[in-house]
Structures are given as structure tokens and as C-alpha cells.
Amino acid sequence: MSTISRDEVAHLAGLARLAVSEDELDTFAGQLDVILDSVARVGEVAADEIPPTSHAVPVTNVFRTDEVRDGLSRGEALAGAPATEENRFRVPRILNEEA
């Protein structure tokens, strides 16, 4: 059962910010298909009344007191940045949202 098309792979790559090549589109479409086919069996057993588990430990209400802690110095914060300017992270132009 083939479930995932090349176009869908391209759409997913867009959502995931991956500039995949044409070749990769085909490879991924094929591989995702195989994987999805084999994992599709999870749907066989999980009946409606089974609650989902999101966390492996049954813990609730873990809170921090509202007290300031030392963070990073500006130097430490910016040290790994590909580019900086005026003590800020410099990034390429952001695609225009207002157009």
C-alpha cells in the first residue's frame, strides 16, 4: 500500500525546512512508504478506549520557584553564533510577512 507521494514528501520537506533534492524526493518517498507500511500495524491494536501515554513517568505538578538565576553572559550567549552585530544574533533577511 503506497501512501506517500512525491508531492507530499516535498510538502513535508518544506514544513521541516529541508532543501531536499529531486533525487532525495524519490528516495524518501520510497523509504517512508516502507517504514509507514510496517508501522501501520500500530493501528490494529489500539482501541478507542485505550488512553494514550505521553510520558513514561506518572509525575505531575513539577514547578520552579519564581527566583532569578544566573544565566549566560552576553559573550557566552553569542559565542557560538554564525554571525552577530550590535550584540545581537545576525540572521539573513526574514521572508516578508506583510507582502
Binding site: L12, R17, L18, A19, F28, L32, I35, V91, P92, I94
Partner: peptide, 26 residues
């Protein structure tokens, strides 16, 4: 920014990582 993000992630991640990101996104 969007183009640089996509190019960086394309070149910075190996095939298995990309495969799983795609699978999870799906």
C-alpha cells in the same frame, strides 16, 4: 532566512536524521 535554514539543514543533517525528521513531520 528560510532559504539559509533549509540549505543548512539539508547539508548539515545526514540521511537517517533527515529520514526521521520527515517521518515525524508526517
Amino acid at each position: 532566512t528560510e532559504e539559509v535554514m533549509s540549505l543548512t539543514r539539508e547539508q548539515g543533517f545526514g540521511p537517517e536524521v533527515k529520514r526521521r525528521i520527515m517521518l515525524g513531520t508526517y
